[in-house]
Amino acid sequence: MILAFDTSTAACTVALFDGSGECIARADEQIGRGHAERLVPMIDELLDGRRADRIIVGVGPGSFTGIRVAIAAAYGLAIGWGAEIKGMSSLALLAADANDDGQVGVAVAGGHGELFVQQFDGATLRPTIELRNLRPSDAAQEINATLVIGSGALQLVDCRGSGVAREAWPSAANTLRLPEELRSLPARPVYARAPDARAKQAA
Rank of each mutant, 00 (worst) to 15 (best):
A96P: 07
A173E: 01
C159Q: 06
E181V: 12
L47E: 11
W169F: 04
L125V: 08
R26F: 04
T128K: 14
R50I: 00
E130H: 15
A109C: 13
G60R: 01
A78R: 09
I67Q: 08
K200N: 12
L3I: 04
G19E: 15
I2R: 06
A203W: 08
A78E: 10
A153F: 06
N174E: 09
S20W: 06
E114N: 14
V148L: 02
N174C: 04
L156Y: 06
Q118M: 11
G122F: 13
A74F: 01
H112T: 03
Q118A: 10
D101T: 09
R126M: 15
N133M: 05
Q201H: 05
S137M: 04
G76A: 03
T13I: 05
A172M: 04
V106S: 09
A73T: 08
A72M: 10
A153I: 02
R26V: 00
I43N: 14
G82A: 01
S89N: 03
P127A: 15
N133F: 12
S184V: 01
G102F: 13
A199G: 09
D121H: 09
D196L: 07
G113R: 09
A199M: 12
G32M: 11
S63P: 00
A203E: 14
G34I: 09
L176P: 11
A203C: 00
L47S: 12
Q118K: 08
F116E: 02
L46V: 07
C159K: 06
V69T: 13
G80I: 07
R135W: 00
Q201G: 07
I43F: 14
E37A: 15
V57T: 10
R33L: 14
V59S: 03
D138Q: 13
M42H: 08
T9Y: 09
G34Y: 13
R198F: 00
A168C: 08
A73P: 05
Y75H: 14
V14R: 05
V40R: 07
E22N: 07
G49A: 06
A197C: 01
V108G: 03
S162M: 08
G60A: 01
A109H: 11
Q155W: 00
E142T: 13
F17T: 06
A83R: 10
F116T: 01
I129N: 13
A72E: 10
A36P: 13
W81H: 11
A4Q: 05
R177N: 10
R38I: 05
T9K: 11
N133Q: 06
S8Y: 00
I143N: 12
A187E: 10
T65E: 05
P170M: 01
L47Y: 15
L115P: 07
A73M: 05
A199P: 11
